[in-house]
């Protein structure tokens, strides 16, 4: 277990280094930072002085190392557009994205697992078949289209829910939350569904197929032969075994929710990190782009590690080498 964890940690470290390299290279390939920092009226000595100060004459590896060193401390430099520290801008925007991701992940997990179990247990029922057919639509419609359809139906036609923004938020100093006000909560509904729908369908289909597979296993048959009641067979014996493989995929899906938030945030003008990134691309705001890239990759790597640990927690067979089993 320890050796395995160390190996995974090492792999994660390598992944982050590579992403860092990509982020760092963006600075070099997308224009000369001197151009954007110094105006039209610059002298050769100005340029050289700045190059020296910024360390642009140092060897590549040294520059890369310095970049990583600053990144680890949360220093991604100044935004070209807003001339403020990138870390500060992202910290402002992060709560919006994280709250949105949290609610959509909860929505996707809850309904994905519940509907997956339902469609597996009632696999020949009318309702289960109807859900499966509708879910096909959920997988094949692009996110932005779902968002626009929801806006059309619930904002334009019915006027029940807002079509853009976060509603009223409460500022806690280090965090802004939409959970505390009615309009904040209402504003979360449509974007969360839009963002979570695809993941929900995926989780549902996965849970269903895993569960069907497990229900065919010998130990389920043996549990039935021992007279264990159906509820217990489904939810004690089958569900636990179903969740083992589901956890990985679900974990990765949650990671991708934050990445996919870009589209949803754009459709709903949600003031989160994704929208910040889209705007940064329009203005070639490299420091913001680089920081976003690195944050997303850290998130993926962290989720991966957590998923691995969950695996150990749930499946005793994987724990075997720790207990020195047989």
């Amino acid at each position: 277990m320890l050796a395995y964890s160390l190996r995974r940690l090492f792999q994660s470290f390598i992944v982050l280094l590579v992403v860092g390299l990509v982020a760092f290279s963006m600075f070099r390939f997308v224009g000369d930072p001197i151009d954007s920092l110094l105006g039209q009226e610059r002298t050769q000595s100005d340029i050289e002085r700045l190059r020296g100060e910024l360390g642009l004459d140092d060897p590549f590896v040294v520059q890369y190392g310095a970049f990583l060193g600053r990144a680890v401390q949360g220093d991604f430099g100044l935004s070209y557009r807003q001339a403020r520290p990138v870390a500060e801008i992202i910290a402002e925007r992060a709560p919006a994205t994280l709250e949105l991701a949290l609610v959509s992940a909860g929505f996707a997990m809850f309904f994905g697992v519940v509907l997956g179990i339902f469609t597996a247990i009632r696999r020949d029922g009318f309702a289960a078949n109807a859900i499966m057919s509708v879910s096909l639509i959920g997988v094949s419609l692009p996110t932005f289209l779902i968002g626009i359809l929801l806006i059309y139906l619930f904002s334009v036609e019915l006027g029940w829910l807002p079509s853009f923004g976060r509603g009223d938020v409460v500022d806690l100093g280090w965090w802004t939350t939409g959970f505390a006000t009615g309009s904040g909560l209402k504003a979360l509904i449509l974007p969360s569904i839009t963002l979570g729908l695809y993941q929900m369908t995926l989780i549902m289909r996965l849970v269903r197929s895993e569960m069907l597979e497990v229900l065919r296993a010998d130990y389920i048959r043996f549990a039935r032969a021992r007279g264990i009641r159906e509820k217990s067979v489904n939810f004690r014996h089958a569900l636990k075994n179903t969740l083992v493989p589901v956890i990985t995929v679900t974990g990765l899906q949650l990671g991708s929710i934050i990445a996919f938030a870009i589209i949803t945030e754009t459709v709903f003008q949600w003031p989160g990190v994704g929208l910040l990134f889209i705007n940064a691309i329009q203005f070639v705001d490299i420091p913001v782009m680089a920081a976003y890239l690195m944050l997303i990759s850290v998130m993926f790597v962290a989720i991966n590690l957590i998923v691995d640990l969950l695996y150990f927690a749930i499946d005793p067979r994987l724990r075997a080498d720790r207990s020195g089993g047989h």
Binding site: D218, A225, R236, H237, P316
Partner: peptide, 30 residues
């Protein structure tokens, strides 16, 4: 009736037991 009046033993002991439940729990459950 199953388990109480008729017991069954299957062919493959490697797959007959639920891998995620302790055997004590499988026994007490029954």
């Amino acid at each position: 009736l199953r388990g109480k009046h008729i017991g069954m033993v299957f062919q493959d002991p490697l797959t007959s037991l639920n891998p995620l439940l302790r055997i004590g729990d499988q026994l007490t459950e029954t």
